[in-house]
Design a protein around this nucleic acid. Sequence first.
DNA 1: GTTGACATGTAACAAGTTACATGATTGA
DNA 2: TCAATCATGTAACTTGTTACATGTCAAC
Lengths: 174, 174
Amino acid sequence: MSLRHAVLGLLTWQPMTGYELANKFDVSLGNAWHASHSQIYPELGKLEDEGMIEVVARGARNSRTYGVTDAGSEELRRWLVDVEPNRQQRSESGVRSFLAPRLLKPKDSRLALERDLRDIRAQQEMLEEIQRRMDEDPGGSHPFAPAVDLGLRINPVIEGWIRDQLAELADTAD
Amino acid sequence: MSLRHAVLGLLTWQPMTGYELANKFDVSLGNAWHASHSQIYPELGKLEDEGMIEVVARGARNSRTYGVTDAGSEELRRWLVDVEPNRQQRSESGVRSFLAPRLLKPKDSRLALERDLRDIRAQQEMLEEIQRRMDEDPGGSHPFAPAVDLGLRINPVIEGWIRDQLAELADTAD
DNA sequence: GTTGACATGTAACAAGTTACATGATTGA
DNA sequence: TCAATCATGTAACTTGTTACATGTCAAC
């Protein structure tokens, strides 16, 4: 399980409400991890029960801002330093790109690959836009900007791969 | 859900038993997707009920070899061509590498990053070994060699990123 | 006053992991 | 005959998604 560590990580950077956390997962860590509020709130409850986090402020609209306790910091440190990382990179893009040229007729394959190329370009542009906005706001805190960076580095790899597949297809009759 | 499409893809390439499928997920697609036999057998049952696959041979040890039906091929084609791909690249490595230098003391951070570096080098060597074996056996069919290729391309990206973090740390006192 | 963002929650379901369980066949 | 591999299955549990549900507050 790693949701709890992602939550602890984000809260270590800055105390937040569950709502803010859910947004952070999208904008900061979205490229590497996603969680929706229906996962986050129960996890916050468990972490509080276990003494890993605590309410540091209560605000309008019954909001609770959580911060990490010493026990939580220690748990995060332990996970980062002591725990065998899970290196698996589940990638639907990967599966799709591998299957298409091998299993489909050239025409269908071209359709699938071109669509994947469009999608990955769109994602790339979105990431570049986010990066641009971060550059324009040097005062703002963007602790997980590297998640964007990771996306910006990996996407071209996959894009190149898809282009290679398309180039090979170009030599093939339909 | 994409397990069924990965299964259909592997079976399109070559009819197999559930057991062989479970192995293929590790060696062929493991870098992009993993599934264990306890997931695969029920999925095979469902796919058979839906007419996507069928038993094409029965062998020793009560084994059943499954092949893809026309309906299954069509479903795979539909998924590859028509369905909006899920581009999310969940990455625990990503999360770990982002968190370590930002949240830990330099000493702990160095420990965590060095461990991640070791692990990713080990994975890289494993992938290189697999690739070597595939090169030595040009007769064998390796339809998902690109999964290995994807790993071989993405790992250096993450490795470079971790090295950058370590280099920054080198300028910092503990 | 009503729309939209903020804020929290639960229920039902699907997907994925780990552990338990069993039996067949091969090769040493 | 014993260990390893082949081969299949289920149960219990955790994780993750989608949908449903409710209420607060600010701005227009």
